[in-house]
């Protein structure tokens, strides 16, 4: 049986008075890739960011309904948000390495967890960089600034940085949208490998990409979850007219 890693129930989210998510209920299975698609502004990022409580940073956000990770309601008032984010990592649309060396970027997570053991750090950094398929490109310049890497490399470095914290879930918000085709395909390949060990939720505006890499696809429209199913099903035989219209490129 496939474990349901993330589950939301009747979730509403407001920015001030403006509703951004409208009654979203979804179950996301463990160790699969789930893609969120939909036209821009439909609430994909908003939904993704509420899974590791990144929306807490925005004062105006109000959330109703429940979100469970491993059957724990993550909006419960006893939840330790810091630890939650260690468990639910995130890769952003725009690659955002720190202005530090490549090594220090990847070692950031372990270090804030109190790991200052040099050889252990080295091990973690190497493993994370390997897992993120960037080791060969940077192994000779680990102590150069991360800002000198290309966009695609920076993004994979950010993925390595997330892996180094050893999360269970990785949220990705259009991780390849700003990249060239070659980098994009590298990232896609990487995602495919990562799902062996991680539950991945990825936002993409690129429908071919979603079709290529995901097991499940959720289609959002105006803050509502219109349709959610196996990717194959969504792309070949969607239940809803809106989904079909979107996938066939009639809007969005």
């Amino acid at each position: 049986m496939i474990l349901q890693k993330i589950r939301t129930e009747n979730m509403y989210l407001y920015y001030g008075n403006k509703m951004a998510l409208n009654n979203v209920s979804i179950s996301i299975p463990e160790k699969q890739v789930t893609a969120l698609i939909g036209p821009s502004g439909c609430g994909k990022s908003t939904f993704l960011r509420s899974l590791n409580r990144m929306n807490d940073l925005i004062d105006s956000v109000k959330i109703e309904g429940n979100i469970f990770v491993d059957d724990i309601n993550i909006y419960d008032k006893n939840i330790d948000v810091v630890n939650l984010r260690k468990k639910v990592g995130m890769v952003f649309q725009k690659s955002n390495p720190f202005a530090k060396s490549i090594f220090d970027n990847v070692a950031y997570g372990p270090r804030i967890n109190g790991n200052n053991n040099k050889s252990e750090l080295k091990e973690i950094v190497e493993k994370s960089l390997r897992d993120a398929a960037i080791w060969d490109e940077v192994k000779d310049r680990l102590h150069d600034s991360a800002m000198g890497l290309s966009g695609g490399q920076q993004q994979r470095l950010c993925i390595a940085r997330t892996l180094a914290v050893d999360p269970e879930i990785i949220l990705m918000d259009e991780p390849a949208s700003a990249l060239d085709p070659i980098s994009t395909s590298k990232i896609e390949e990487l995602i495919f490998q990562l799902k062996e060990n991680f539950t991945i939720v990825i936002v993409t505006h690129n429908m071919q990409q979603a079709a290529r890499i995901s097991d499940n696809t959720a289609f959002f429209y105006l803050g509502e979850l219109i349709e959610y199913n196996k990717t194959k099903k969504i792309y070949t035989n969607p239940d809803k007219k809106q989904t079909e219209d979107y996938i066939s490129g009639r809007f969005g």
Binding site: V82, R85, K86, N96, F98, G109, I112, C158, T162, V165
Partner: peptide, 18 residues
């Protein structure tokens, strides 16, 4: 300092002070 950097750090499980 871009908000993205703060978010990156927090998303890695850093506390606010860290």
């Amino acid at each position: 300092i871009p908000r993205e950097l703060r978010e990156a750090s927090l998303a890695l499980g850093a506390t606010k002070w860290q």
